[in-house]
Design a protein around this nucleic acid. Structure first.
Lengths: 200, 200
DNA sequence: CCGATACGCAACGGTCCCGTTTCGTAAACC
DNA sequence: GGTTTACGAAACGGGACCGTTGCGTATCGG
């Protein structure tokens, strides 16, 4: 009882390497971000990429799905400070986060998983939605609801429909838009187009 | 030279079974429609589902990608007759086709492939885009351009942005909207929301 | 009937990955 | 030093699928 006795009795023997744990999760996210589906992920590939023995993985997670769940749980939605001055500005900020994320392989995990594995891994999706998708959705929803309340958006606007138009348009550009990087002003143009509508 | 001599000399021996060929392609599309990615497709699973020997597949296609290319080539975009009375009506018809297709496993191939395998199979994607995606896009683009010309849509509207808002919103509802079947009036509501915009 | 080709089926050796075990070494505690 | 647990590496038997081959049968033209 010299030091480091915080009540939880430290187990005997060599402690588990946190570095290895991080490397495993990083490798998992990297592979997913490269476009690999969950079913194509192999423990051996993760171990190899992480520079780790398979034993070290199986000691921590009993199967692939548990590992992926934990890996995805470390993904947090980057929550920008919304200035709250105008709904238009806040929407641009939120959608521009989507644009920026679409470029980083790491952040691409979110969209890759959300789009592809929706049906097959219900347990995984449930956690993943709660952790990574819901915060993004909630932020967008809050801005839209605030806009309705303040009169900046139509009083009869269906909130879900507003979310669909805004983030759907970003999604469309990401996957099917003109090739290459997304234009820097894409978020602004999407917001303005959605706000003013297609009709004259 | 009794009958059936159309210049292409009929090769000797038993002819290849067109029924088997159709069954193979059907099985391939079924598996893709069930959410199976191209890399998870196995020749053995296709053969089994089609009630066919592997030999019969390898006799026709030398690898999986060729088979998938041919299978996807049989997918044609269902092209509804557009009445052309109003842009709004035509947009609703086009988007409602998307809604209807989202339910049928067979037609889900288009979206599943288009969303998931974009990067990894460039040769496949090129053909697939040309055959199955482009016609849909062209139809939507034509309607939007007609609307701009007729004054039913804003003169300064970016056509790509219009397509993104409309089909992006449908896509969003398909993947992330409230669970269950898409509402029967979804296309109409999306079109009206996009036309009038979010602002008052 | 005969030759030729396609068919479904089963088997082959090869590769990848599984999940487990063994081994020698490393890092914490007493 | 001694005990205990974790580590990376290697090997295991097992399963899925690969692409190929051989087999007996079916279906065409001549």
């Amino acid at each position: 009882m010299t030091i480091q006795e915080t009540g939880t009795a430290r187990p005997a023997g060599r402690p588990r390497s946190e570095k290895a744990e991080r490397a495993i999760i990083e490798a998992t996210l990297d592979l997913i971000g490269e476009g690999m589906g969950v079913s194509e992920l192999s423990i051996e590939a993760i171990a190899s990429k992480a520079g780790v023995g398979k034993t070290t993985i199986y000691r921590r997670w009993s199967n692939k799905e548990d590992l992926v769940v934990d890996a995805l749980a470390t993904l947090k939605a980057p929550m920008p400070r919304l200035r709250g001055t105008s709904v238009r500005d806040d929407l641009i900020v939120l959608l521009d986060v989507m644009r920026a994320e679409a470029g980083q392989p790491r952040s691409r995990c979110v969209m890759n998983i959300a789009m592809s594995e929706a049906d097959r891994y219900p347990r995984l999706m449930e956690r993943f939605m709660k952790r990574a998708v819901e915060p993004r959705r909630a932020a967008l929803r809050a801005v839209i609801e605030r806009g309705i309340a303040s009169g900046e958006l139509r009083a009869d606007l269906d909130v879900d429909m507003g979310m669909a138009l805004l983030s759907g348009a970003m999604l469309w550009h990401t996957k099917w838009g003109p090739e290459g990087e997304l234009a820097a002003d894409l978020a602004e143009r999407v917001v303005d187009a959605a706000l003013s509508g297609l009709a004259p």
